[in-house]
Amino acid sequence: MDLLTELTHVAPYAIGLSLPVALIGAGLLYLLRHRSLATTLTVLVVVPLAATLAGVLGVTGFMFGPLLTTVVVICTAVGVITVPIAVVLGRTIARRSVWEREARARERAAEASRRELVAWISHDLRTPLAGIRAMAEALADGVVDERGEVCSYADRIRGETERLSRMVDDLFELSRITAGALHLELGAVPLHDVVSEAVAAENPRAQRRGVRLATETEQWPVVSGSDAELARVVRNLLSNAIRHTPPHGSVVLSAGYDGAQAWLRVDDACGGIADTELERVFEVAYRGDQARGDGEQGAGLGLAIARGLVQAHRGEIHARNHGPGCRFEVRLPLADGVA
């Protein structure tokens, strides 16, 4: 009964000072609701300690004694331990939350890119397949029987078949890159040999389109890489440049080195790309408005594959507007012993 009477006597003093501190803490939490999680957790730790200390002060009548001293020491010790923990915990949770949001954003972007790729590939596959089917039916039904027309149809069927084959090859190469199944056997590769092979392969198409294909380099560097994959990079860059360069325009390759890196540049005459879209040209299935009207358009994978292969070589690839068109620059590590 005496204990109950004593509690009834001291409770108003404890509540009278603890409650305002708790309300102030609630107000601080509201004001700091848009601040960092570490700040919020710190307030949540400090407010109960301050409310406890205020309640004890109310009970003791602000008279220092054993009880007040003990409570102050305990609250101080608890605060010294819990406040840093709250700060560290808040920052850790905040970083994890940011990482999770970024991961979800990347997943959504990747899923959207995959859906877009499937839609575009489906569209691009239907077009040549419909042409092949129509021409095959015309040949089978005898609608076309003159030798010249038959040869023409056969050539067109072969051309569409090669186009489909290139699209399948691109999809396979991209799947290797994105799945992390691409394993390179690196060696010393003379960049001149790779460029010469790519130019020889792409020059006939450039001539058909009336595009001049030229190289402007005297001393070609030797890089650390894989022949086949580097040739694929150069051919993809040349194919893209030729596709977007108008007749009588030029596509120029140049190379050199600075420091421990070699560089290869492909300059075209496409008329330039909006600054906001320059980095998007390397996205999977991205094609600008110009490409949509091009009869030779591909699946929009060439530059994405080039970037993946360059990165697999521990290199970099960038695009920027330059002169009458765009410049695609590849940077690769030099072969050991080359400087």
Rank of each mutant, 00 (worst) to 15 (best):
A201N: 10
D193G: 05
W220E: 08
P204V: 05
A214G: 13
E216W: 09
L186W: 06
L191V: 11
R209Y: 08
R212N: 13
E202H: 03
L186G: 06
L191I: 09
E216Y: 11
V195R: 01
L191M: 07
H192K: 13
H192Q: 14
Q207R: 15
E185M: 05
Q207G: 11
Q207L: 13
T217R: 04
R208Y: 12
R205Y: 10
V189W: 01
D193Y: 08
T215F: 07
G187N: 04
G187M: 01
N203H: 14
D193V: 13
L213A: 05
A188S: 12
A200K: 10
V195T: 05
V211G: 00
E218M: 11
A206R: 02
N203F: 09
V195Q: 01
E202G: 03
G210C: 03
Q207D: 12
R205D: 11
A200S: 10
E218V: 11
E216P: 07
S196V: 12
V195P: 00
A214M: 14
V199K: 10
Q219D: 15
S196G: 14
R208A: 13
R212K: 13
E218G: 15
E218I: 12
V189R: 00
A206S: 03
Q219A: 14
Q207A: 15
W220P: 08
A200I: 02
A200C: 06
P204E: 03
A188N: 04
D193R: 11
Q207I: 13
G187E: 07
A206W: 02
W220L: 08
A198H: 00
L213Y: 02
P190Q: 06
A188I: 01
G210H: 02
T215E: 14
R212I: 14
Q219E: 15
A188Q: 08
A201S: 10
S196I: 10
N203I: 09
V194I: 11
V211R: 00
E202F: 00
R208E: 13
A206N: 08
E216F: 08
R205K: 12
V195L: 01
V194P: 07
P190V: 09
V195K: 01
V194Q: 01
V189I: 08
V194G: 03
A200V: 07
T217E: 05
S196M: 08
E197M: 10
A198P: 02
W220Y: 06
